[in-house]
Amino acid sequence: MAAVKKDIIGKLQEQILNLQGFKPERNAHGIDFGLGIISNAFPGNVFPLAALHEFLATNLEDASASGGFISVLLSTLMKKGGLCLWISTQRKIFPPSLITFGLSPERIIFIDLQNERDVLWASEEALKCESLTAVVTELDEISFAQSRRLQLVIEKSRVTAFVIRKNAEKLSSTLAAARWRISAMPSGAIDGLPGLGFARWHVELLKVKNGIPGNWMIEYAAGVFKPVKQVPFNDLKIRKAV
């Protein structure tokens, strides 16, 4: 009986999503990013591709964490080959570090620009190119209209866009499918040894289109997201991600 109900509810939810304008083919191949229960926050329980993902990173520490997190996603996306563009001004990303997250740095083409206007123009042009796997854009601000322009291009080319917003003070709403904030968390000791543990991130999904926001803890080790045994920051109500 319960199974039947679940089935019905699932179908109804699908209908609602259709009515809301959500296109299920966004991740038709169902690429699994190993995000565990975080995927449940998205409509249809799949990570939306061919969409705009926004990451808030106001300081270099958060930018590093976001960079790491995005690299993991990119490495999954680019498993079958392809190229990715990383468009920014005053880039500090250090290419050799990305190999730690399974991403081959030689497959990224960095576009280093002088001003924000060029970044937006270059991002739009890049997103028009369906041969790219993804486009990462670092910028200070993006207005609703600008995000809409990118979204319109994405809908044609079906390239996934990751936008890192470095200035979140004037946080305008955008057409992004998801707004993330990735920040560092104290790592756990490996086998009780001193020294740094694996990278552990506090993943906040602040906004999800047609989904449920939430925040989780995630650890990245040996090429995959790993379950975390001990949970600090109990008062934050962080759920385990994997």
Binding site: G82, L83, P95, P96, P105, E106, I108, I109, F110, I111, D112, L113, D118, W121, A122, E125, A126, K128, C129, E130, S131, L132
Partner: peptide
Amino acid sequence: SNQKVIELLDRLAGKLGAQVIQRYLP
């Protein structure tokens, strides 16, 4: 699709200058 990426890079280089395109090897 390589060709398309090259064409995209040509467009970027045409407007912003070839020096903005960077790729790195160890």
